[in-house]
Design a binder for these strands. Sequence first.
DNA 1: GTGGTCTAGACCACG
DNA 2: GTGGTCTAGACCACC
Lengths: 134, 134, 134, 134
Amino acid sequence: MRTLHVDFESEIPVYRQIADEIRGLVARGELADGSELPSVRQLASRVGVNLNTIAKAYRLLADEGLVELRHGSGARVRIGADPYREPADDIERRLHDVLSRLVLTGSSRRQVERLLERAVDRFFSGPAPVRRGS
Amino acid sequence: MRTLHVDFESEIPVYRQIADEIRGLVARGELADGSELPSVRQLASRVGVNLNTIAKAYRLLADEGLVELRHGSGARVRIGADPYREPADDIERRLHDVLSRLVLTGSSRRQVERLLERAVDRFFSGPAPVRRGS
Amino acid sequence: MRTLHVDFESEIPVYRQIADEIRGLVARGELADGSELPSVRQLASRVGVNLNTIAKAYRLLADEGLVELRHGSGARVRIGADPYREPADDIERRLHDVLSRLVLTGSSRRQVERLLERAVDRFFSGPAPVRRGS
Amino acid sequence: MRTLHVDFESEIPVYRQIADEIRGLVARGELADGSELPSVRQLASRVGVNLNTIAKAYRLLADEGLVELRHGSGARVRIGADPYREPADDIERRLHDVLSRLVLTGSSRRQVERLLERAVDRFFSGPAPVRRGS
DNA sequence: GTGGTCTAGACCACG
DNA sequence: GTGGTCTAGACCACC
C-alpha cells in the first residue's frame, strides 16, 4: 500500500486521518476490493504511531463497512453493495466552510472554481476511481 | 444579523459551527466591515447555548482577525488588510475527504462536479461576496 | 442509576457487559429516555475498571443510537424513533445454542419452557418495559 | 454427519460455531452416543477452514466431555453420565441480553414469547432429543 | 467539570 | 502471526 500522509499538527485526530486516507485510496481505486491491508503492527510502526491508533482507524472503517476485520487473519478492503451512509449535512457544511475561508483569503469566484477543478482533477487522475451504485 | 443554523447532532463543535456561520456571512457580504455583532448574551439565548460557547466562537474569530472584541460586551466585524491565515493543509485534506466520500456514495465524476458547481453557485448568489486582498 | 453487575471471569468483554446492562436497563424501562448516565469517571471508579473501558461501552451504545454523548456535558439516554438494528442471525444462533446446552444439562422440553418463561417474567416484571415501534 | 452452517460474518468465532453446531446435533439426537465424527481434515476441507480451527472445536467439546478424541485423527461422540458443566451465569446473561435487544427492536412481550416458543418448537421437532441426567 | 485522543505495554483470543 | 481487550496515565477539546 502507498504511503500514508499524517499531519500530527492537524486538529483532525490521527486515527481519523488514517481512516480518511485509506478511504481515499479505496475511492480512487488504488486499493481494490479484497486487497489486504497492512497489519495493525506494521502500519503502526510505519506511520510512527501506537498500535491502538491504527486499530481504531481500522475499526472505524469496519463500522462503515469498508473494511473487513478477521480475527487472526488480517484486515482487507471490502466494498459492499449497500450504499455508503454519511450525514449529508456535514458534507454540505464543510464545503460551505471551505468556500468561506477561500473567499476570505482573497480568492475570487473564478479562483475558487479553478481550485476545485484542480482538486477534482487530481482526485480522478489516479488508476481508475471506484464506481459503485452510480 | 440573520439567523444562525446550528446542528446539535453534528460532530462539529457548536462553537465552531457558530464561528463558521459568522465567517460565512462575512465572506458572502451579508455582514459588512464594521457591523456590530449581537452581544454574547443575546446570541447565546437566541441560539440556545451557553454563554461560554458564544464567547469562544467570538474569540476564535478575533484570533483570526475577523472580529474585534470590545470591553463590555460589544463585538464588531473588522476586515483587516492582512492576509487571512489558515492552515491550507487541513482545507486540502477536508476537500479530498469530501470527494472520497462522495465517490464512495456512488457519485460519478460528473455528479461530483455538478454538486460542487451548485455549492459554489449557492455561495456566490448572495448580496455581494466580499472582495479583499486579491 | 442502579448497580451494574460485571463478571470479570466471563469471556464476554467487560465493556460489552456494561453496554449490555445499560441496554437492558433501558429496555426494561429503568432508564427513561433523556436520563443522564453517570460520567465516565464516576462509573469507572464505581465498577472498578479503567476509564477507557467505560468510554468504550458508551461509544458502543452511542453508535447503536441508544445514547447521546455530548462533549463536555455528559451522556444521556436517547431512544430514537429509528428501528434498532441487529443481525437476527446471531440472536437465532445464540438462542439455539442456549437450548442445546440446557438440554445437554439434562433439562426436558418442559423444563426448558419453564426456564424461558421465568426469564421472560423476570424481565418484564420491572417498572414498565419500553414500548417502541411495536 | 449433516452439513454444518458457519457464518463467517458472525462475530462468534468460527471454532465455536462449529462446536455449537455439533453440540446441537447431539442435543437434538441427530448424533447418537458413539457416533464417529468426521476427521479433522475432512471437516476442515468441507467447511473451508483451517485445520487448527476444527481441532480447536473438537478439543473444546472434548473438554466439555461430549467428545472423545483418539490418537490418529478419530473422534467420536461420548455422552457420559457426569453432569454437563456450564457456567450458568453466561447463559443467563446472554438470554437477558437477547430479551433486551428484542424489546428495543420493538417486540412486545407477546411477540417475544411467541418467538421463544417457535424456537423451542423448531429445536425439539427433530428426531428425538437426547434425554439424560434428568 | 465533561468526553476524546493517544501512548506504552501486557495479556488474551483467533486461525 | 493476526486483531481484541484492558490498564495507567497524560493531555486536549468542549461547555
